[in-house]
């Protein structure tokens, strides 16, 4: 069956979405954009103690071209903003973004000349994980929220 054009029978489309989303949500290729202390929590989450591999996301790719889930982990300053934008643009569709920690969500306690007040001013964010820094459990909860969101999407939608 050709993937580019939707087949006429609705029942088949639904099942195809389901199976594709099932594959996508259990095999996130994370790009960890780690800039600050939340990165320690990510390392803890990714290592064996909390074991992010239970969610199929254990394989961080350090090239955005090989990743589909961008983790913005830490403070983003104005000097770095164009780089975040560039990295996000380099990722292929489908792609998702999780903002981890208070700084990435809203600027956190940095309300000054240098810090961007939330990474959603630069790139679209799907899931926000709160905490300063968030515990690994919160991180895993964010991954599960992301899985739930991916499950609702259709593979024929272009997201960004």
């Amino acid at each position: 069956m050709e993937i580019g054009s939707p087949p006429s029978g609705n029942i088949i489309t639904t099942r195809l979405d389901k199976i594709v989303n099932w594959g996508r949500k259990w095999s996130f290729f994370c790009y960890p954009f780690v800039t600050a202390c939340c990165g320690m929590e990510y390392m803890s989450t990714a290592a064996s103690h909390y074991d992010i591999a239970r969610f199929g996301a254990e394989f961080p790719r350090f090239s955005p071209r090989q990743a589909d889930l961008m983790l913005v982990v830490g403070t983003i300053c104005h000097k770095l903003a164009p780089v975040v934008k560039l990295v996000h643009e380099q990722m292929c569709e489908p792609k998702w973004v999780i903002a981890v920690g208070a700084c990435a969500c809203s600027g956190g306690f940095y309300r000054n000349y240098s810090v961007v007040q939330g990474v959603d001013r630069i790139i679209p964010v799907d899931v926000y994980v709160t905490g300063c820094p968030p515990r690994p459990e919160a991180f895993l909860d964010g991954i599960m929220k992301m899985q739930a969101k991916v499950d609702t999407e259709s593979m024929f939608q272009r997201r960004n």
Partner: peptide
């Protein structure tokens, strides 16, 4: 708390 213009 002055914010700088955002450069993308």
């Amino acid at each position: 708390d002055r914010e700088q213009p955002l450069f993308e």
